[in-house]
Design a protein around this nucleic acid. Sequence first.
DNA 1: AGAAAAAACGACAGCTACTATCAAAAGATA
DNA 2: TATCTTTTGATAGTAGCTGTCGTTTTTTCT
Lengths: 207, 207
Amino acid sequence: MSCGQNQAMTTSPADKPVGLRERKKARTRAAIQDHALRLFTEQGYAATTVEQIAEAAEVSQSTFFRYFPTKEDTVLYDRLDPVLIEHFLNQPADVGPVAAIRAAVHEVFRGLDEEQAELEAARQRLVLSVPDLRAKLFEQFTEGMRMLHDAILRRLGRERDDFAVRMWTGALTGVVLAAYVTSIEEGGDFLEYIDRGLTQFEQGLPL
Amino acid sequence: MSCGQNQAMTTSPADKPVGLRERKKARTRAAIQDHALRLFTEQGYAATTVEQIAEAAEVSQSTFFRYFPTKEDTVLYDRLDPVLIEHFLNQPADVGPVAAIRAAVHEVFRGLDEEQAELEAARQRLVLSVPDLRAKLFEQFTEGMRMLHDAILRRLGRERDDFAVRMWTGALTGVVLAAYVTSIEEGGDFLEYIDRGLTQFEQGLPL
DNA sequence: AGAAAAAACGACAGCTACTATCAAAAGATA
DNA sequence: TATCTTTTGATAGTAGCTGTCGTTTTTTCT
């Protein structure tokens, strides 16, 4: 019923402090997020109040804001970015950076089951259609750019503030963002657009 | 005293309906924006209320929101993007797209006097330091990406939905954004970073 | 098991960005 | 001057978000 939350890996790998408290917290978080997304798609983002979400999830407003600092975060709380970076860093050292990114993206998105993929698609559509959410999403992208920048630096053994790497990372982020927007506007598989975009990038972005 | 508002060119070029009403509107808009920016830099963005800005500009809150739909827009109301596009389109047809962009950026930013440049710099610093403003700025960048996409299509005579152009534009926007962020973080001339970024882009983004 | 400590919760009050409405004031027009 | 339109201000209201505090629930210690 509830969508799978991958929260367990936030703690250290050795101990498993999955006490009753942790389980209830995870359930509450998932309930809030699920009901929020359902209400948003049913009656629109702006027309849905935090009070309604809290009521549907059977928590108080105080509790809502303890779990999600803003209403927007019920949609944009990003679980995927750190996972992507992790997969990227785990790629073998001899593959090029673009190939490593391609592999990481594939590994993460192919790992979603159909229900998760469906939910993710709905979420993406919602995000791009609501201005406030769009704005925050774009900021997330640039935060991702920064993380990617650090990862690339480490991978290539470059020193900090390498301007060429900065521009390279910026361009690649722009490509991914453009592919993302295109996939929403044109419809179709997100992964395919990313793939084509990365190929263009590898070929030097011919016009 | 008041910073130069280039509002006049929004009307059709033939008539000049610069009546008393129009002049007062321009003055009010400038007053709100100036006092807002001053208060933001003096006491911080979040700590400054709309009420304070309205009081400083000697207008009611109603009037404030008639001029600026949101508090953020006092900082982010962008007058430069359409000007940039216009200059880009006015470049001679035989220069390449990157060179045309470079020329347009130079023309626009070199056209600012020292006071305007100083104000613009303060504005840029403020924008990147406040999360809410950052988010909206990034959205503006992608709107700029869309406008640039259309302009490039027209310039190259391509048909709509050319994937290669989309990726090219996305990458270029990413480069400009990265150069922008770098110029804020590292300090130094904004134009110089843009120039170097565009050069990197022209050279195929070597690592 | 029982007590103490810690964490989570709900209720309430308050601030502020933002919207809607409507009457008064100011500018344009004749 | 008189009329018509645009702009403005006052007021009331909604909703996101914060802070506080007493209560309940869960964990930990003995």
